[in-house]
């Protein structure tokens, strides 16, 4: 089950990363190829103009959001990635103390950590739902899209990270038991 979830989240994260990079890249293409080369060409050659206007408006509609949407998508990349990292190699933490302690204490520390993180995630879930209810309908600056769609990652991340954190605690405890 969780494997499938991992695959889905991974695909979403990579896809979102690709899309947000494409926005930035298209902005450069638009600046130099469309608004630069093609424009000069259309200026010299009347027949080119309808085609130039078509491309300009098509790409213009996309890149007008290039100073906003890639940033919004980055939030998705970050939090989907955070789930994947929690499932695999883990986030950067100071492990020296934990490793130097006897096993019982290690378990207790892990328990405290898990409880703290999960507690925070519950809070995050609740407050981010509140945030979306208050401000979700407001449109983003550069397009007629409600910002709530982008904010949806916050409660989603809270749920995903909650699952990953619990799973991590369980598998660590199981490993400890097997070793003894």
């Amino acid at each position: 089950m969780l494997r499938l979830l991992d695959k889905i989240v991974e695909a979403m994260a990579v896809f979102t990363f690709a899309i947000s990079s494409a926005f930035v890249f298209l902005n450069v293409v638009n600046r130099y190829l469309v608004l630069g080369l093609m424009r000069d060409w259309a200026k010299a050659n009347e027949a080119m103009r309808p085609f130039y206007f078509w491309v300009r408006d098509l790409l213009g509609n996309i890149v007008v959001t290039a100073d906003e949407v890639p940033g919004l998508l980055l939030v998705w990349v970050a939090f989907l990635g955070a789930y994947l990292t929690m499932r695999r190699e883990g986030h950067i933490a100071f492990e020296l103390l934990e490793e130097s302690l006897p096993k019982v204490w290690r378990k207790i520390l892990r328990g405290i950590n898990t409880a703290l993180i999960c507690g925070f995630l519950v809070l995050l879930f609740w407050q981010s739902i509140r945030m979306i209810r208050v401000a979700g309908a407001t449109e983003i600056e550069t397009a007629e899209i409600a910002q709530g769609w982008f904010m949806l990652i916050m409660p989603l991340a809270a749920v995903l990270l909650f699952i990953a954190t619990i799973q991590r605690f369980l598998s660590q405890t199981m490993q400890d038991n097997e070793r003894s």
Partner: peptide
């Protein structure tokens, strides 16, 4: 700054709006 609308205004004046 802003969206399609301002982009259109600057295009009408012959500028090439950038984001």
């Amino acid at each position: 700054s802003g969206g399609k609308f301002r982009q259109g205004v600057f295009q009408q004046m012959g500028a090439t709006p950038q984001k």
